[in-house]
Amino acid sequence: MDFLRAASLDDALATKAQRPDIAPIAGGTDLMVAINFDHIRPSGLLDLTSVPELADWSESGGVIRIGAGVPYARIISELGEHLPGLAMASRTVASPQIRNRGTVGGNLATASPSGDAHPALLACAAEVELASVRGTRRLPVAEFFTGVKRSAAEPDELITAVHLARATGPQQFAKVGTRNAMVISVCAFSVALHPDRAEVGTGLGSAAPTPRRAVEAEEFLAGELTSRGMWTDPRPLPETVVTRFGELVAAAAAPIDDVRGTASYRRHALGVLARRTVGWTWDEYSTGRQTCA
């Protein structure tokens, strides 16, 4: 194993092109566990913490680009207003120490179905920015996840950023764990209202081999809100709509029994989370109050 420090993105991409099996490392919060426990031995480590192109976030035309090296702690403290769903999700990541190091880029690189950022990214229709010496491309996050801990990133590519539209409506994120802090999700759910385009976004975590949307639930709720004229004239959400939304979210899940929970619990809990979070977002939408992480 060797250790290479990339000083620039070009430098990092050149290395990754030459040595596609090298393990990129930023916060190290996934990779170092695997190394410490002797679960993997990569041929080398490529340190990205000194790459300036990954280190910051910026906004342009209502779209926020978060460099892959921005730690969760900064998303919570700096982006809570612009990206409330992702900021809430970030707050549930592990511990403060981990949030000081861990990054959304790393979460995507691991591509675990339980990654905390993923449901919020899905609900916001985020795009993943991938770069290689061949060029840069952007991929809708829903197309990024291809299997359990597998993604559409090519071996020579690095995840360089995510792009999300600044929130135009309320967003929520909720995660179930068997402990009140510092826990990997048993299941997680995020919902975002996009009144600018009369759409609803969702994201489910630990609910299937990959993080996924509940497309039917999104379309159902957006349709109800539109047909009832509630985007412009918000009234209390009918109980039947909330219930149906919860059912559709639960139906979108294809969970498994594992050490953290049963499939049956996950399906049930996702329904509960969906009903509650949609209630909270609608409450915010109709009252104009915003929740921050």
């Binding site: 250790f3 420090r5 490392i25 916060g27 190290g28 919060t29 990779l31 170092m32 566990v33 190394i35 410490n36 426990f37 480590l45 340190d47 913490t49 592990a94 511990s95 403060p96 120490q97 981990i98 000081n100 190091r101 510092m182």
Partner: peptide, 27 residues
Amino acid sequence: CEQGECGSCTVYLDDVPVCSCMVAAGQ
């Protein structure tokens, strides 16, 4: 624990508390 779960290895790295078990030596 050496897996970032217990915090007993917490140190300041450039004034930010981190789990030192999760920082590769070279970093």
